[in-house]
Design a protein around this nucleic acid. Structure first.
Length: 569
RNA sequence: CGGGGUGUGGCGCAGCGGCUAGCGCGCAUGGUUUGGGACCAUGAGGUCGGUGGUUCAAAUCCACUCACCCCGACCA
């Protein structure tokens, strides 16, 4: 490609609305352009990167036995109502109305459509397992798009769906996908780590995410110092240290004027926070809920949401608490009626705790569960933190940040049951297909690659996904020798199948070098009167400082070999 | 949706009651240059986000509205 003809130019300054790192670099490099909030165009250079990622993904999906198909973005809303996921997706689902006043959804994912397809085409266990996938645009009306390509409303996703005869089959398909995903990240030159994850609106049970570690990542990862345990912080578990057992004492009132926060309470009474009972209130799908946890721990809202099986969970406001008898700052489960109470299992790991009294400036000492209060649901709703103990080995947990670049789910049978994706087993018994689903956001992967691969000059693409491999950079284009050699090299390299971006512009060396660095092409080849004096051209890796002179007649084979060794061509 | 912020040529910004709306980059033409974002000359390009109001006069003040960005609840 000749740079002079390339659509999309490099910018010295990033657009003001590009805040995030990858967004700024991709915009400055002329690889993407924003159309509206969370909606982007890929310009030719960015699209080449995307296509390379896509190709790697497609190869791995095919190799794992996936069959590619293409489902529509436009989906009848009835399908979403049939599975009950219209509610689960809520406002994130784009809904539109056609001229017949019929409601349609723009597909945010395709479980409904693919399961309906399987319902119609699969009748026998002999047709399973089945791995169906597509690479296609998804639409999600995100509450807040952000970070350029990292979180958008229209995005390109590879989504694969597995259908198996039983759980064991699902397990196999799942493992196949996990290793296919690991191959994909490795081949893209992006080291992603697998972590346990919450399954969110997609539903289902087991789930793992693939994370690319980056300071700027939106997600927190909790992993173990000693073993391989790693989980998204919203899912992570830990060992809760039990307190030494004590004889339960009678409940006692204590005056605590103005003391509301746990830390203040502990200081005021000169006890450890773990000897207190923390009570916070939420509105769960607009119903007030009292959430209880031992004072030294924090509530994990994702876990609460799962335990309560509710869609929307938010901190309660004064208005939500009206008529419940709860007094903010001195809230207590003791003597409370008519309010749903959820508790973390840590409340069983201590005795004689200090709790609120539901009266201003008063707390209760020696509160014990279940002697003094009841709860509706009890389970793990605690937030894991760095320093907590690993649930597997007990070693210390560590926190890191990452960008989610893939997510796999074991769905089970709830969708196949609802949509009738049944098959007859070898005994003639009708059974629902056991499903899994597996997604990678390609644009996100592209942006994450930039977040992870850049320096102060610009992007440093891993070779397998670089838009071009070689930046051919003639200096002094008014010199006929230079242009002759450069033209020659360009056709020579191109004929060998190498991907060359030929900077044939009449620009100063500074401009060209800076653009080369900004675009992040792995290899730079400079031709100038100076290099021609020794009948050679200069070679430089984007990520290295040193340069090297290579004789003219060796350049093509040399570049070919170099890239070959790097695993390309 | 709650909180904060920004809308002025393609990009980055200045102007915040006064006359013909500026500057840098980029773009066009010509010339001189050029191993890490050169210089000179000439030139093109703007309904100042929109609507309504106040005023002799509005980019500038007021109201409403739209768009976009950032921080929080959601996800590939």
């Amino acid at each position: 490609m000749r740079f002079s003809k390339l659509f999309g130019k490099t910018l010295r300054q990033a657009p003001a609305d590009a805040e995030g790192l990858s967004h700024q670099l991709l915009a400055r490099a002329g690889m993407i352009a924003q159309v509206s909030a969370g909606v982007y165009s890929y310009l030719p250079l960015g699209w080449r990167v995307l296509r390379k990622i896509e190709r790697i993904i497609r190869e791995e999906m095919d190799r794992a036995g996936g069959q590619e198909l293409m489902m529509p973005s436009l989906q009848p809303l009835e399908l979403w109502e049939a599975t009950g996921r219209r509610q689960a997706f809520g406002k994130t689902l784009f809904v539109l109305r056609d001229r017949r006043e019929h409601d349609l959804a723009l597909g945010p994912t395709h479980e409904e459509v693919v399961t309906d397809l399987v319902h119609r085409y699969v009748q026998s266990y002999r047709e399973l397992p089945l791995l169906l996938y597509q690479i296609q645009n998804k639409f999600r009306d995100e509450p807040r798009p952000r970070g350029g390509l990292l979180r958008v409303r229209e995005f390109i996703m590879k989504d694969l769906y597995s259908f198996d005869v039983d759980e064991a089959g699902l397990e196999q398909s799942y493992q196949k996908m996990v290793s296919a995903y690991q191959n994909i990240y490795r081949r893209c030159g992006l080291p992603a780590v697998k972590v346990e994850a919450d399954s969110g609106a997609i539903g289902g049970k087991d789930s793992h995410e693939f994370m690319l570690l980056a300071e700027t990542g939106e997600d927190e990862i909790i992993h173990c110092r000693g073993c391989t345990y790693a989980a998204n912080a919203e899912k992570a578990e830990f060992r809760k240290a039990p307190l030494p057992p004590e004889e339960p004492l009678p409940v006692e009132e204590v005056s605590t004027p103005g003391v509301t926060a746990i830390a203040d309470l502990a200081r005021f009474l000169d006890i450890s926070p773990s000897k207190t009972l923390k009570a916070v209130f939420y509105a769960a799908d607009s119903t007030p809920a009292l959430v209880l946890i031992r004072g030294d721990l924090d509530v994990n809202e994702t876990k609460v949401r799962n335990l309560l099986k509710c869609n929307e969970l938010r901190m309660a406001t004064e208005a939500d608490l009206k008529g419940t008898g709860i007094v903010a700052g001195f809230a207590s489960p003791v003597g409370l009626k008519g309010v749903k109470a959820v508790a973390d299992d840590s409340i069983c790991l201590g005795s004689n705790l200090v709790a609120g009294a539901n009266r201003p400036d008063t707390h209760l000492k020696n509160v014990n569960y279940p002697r003094d209060f009841k709860v509706d649901v009890i389970g793990d709703i605690a937030q894991a933190r760095a320093g907590h103990q690993c649930p597997r080995c007990g070693d210390a947990l560590i926190s890191a940040r990452g960008i989610e670049v893939g997510h796999v789910f074991k769905l089970g049978t709830f969708l196949s049951e609802k949509l009738g994706a049944m098959f007859l087993d070898e005994n003639g018994v009708s059974r629902p297909a056991v499903m899994g689903c597996y997604g990678i956001g390609l644009g996100r992967l592209l942006a994450a690659a930039v977040e992870q691969n850049h320096d102060d000059k610009g992007i440093t693409w891993p070779i397998p996904i670089a838009p071009y491999h070689i930046y051919l950079c003639p200096l002094y284009t008014d010199n006929p020798d230079v242009t002759a050699v450069a033209d020659d090299l360009y056709s020579g390299l191109t004929n060998e199948g190498l991907e060359v971006l030929f900077d044939d512009r009449d620009e100063s060396p500074g401009v060209k070098f800076n653009d080369a660095d900004l675009l992040g092409i792995p290899l730079r080849t400079t031709v100038s009167p100076r290099t021609l004096k020794s009948k050679s051209v200069e070679l430089k890796w984007r990520t290295r400082k040193e340069t090297e002179l290579v004789p003219l007649d060796e350049v093509v084979t040399r570049l070919k070999d170099t890239l070959h060794k790097a695993g390309q061509c």
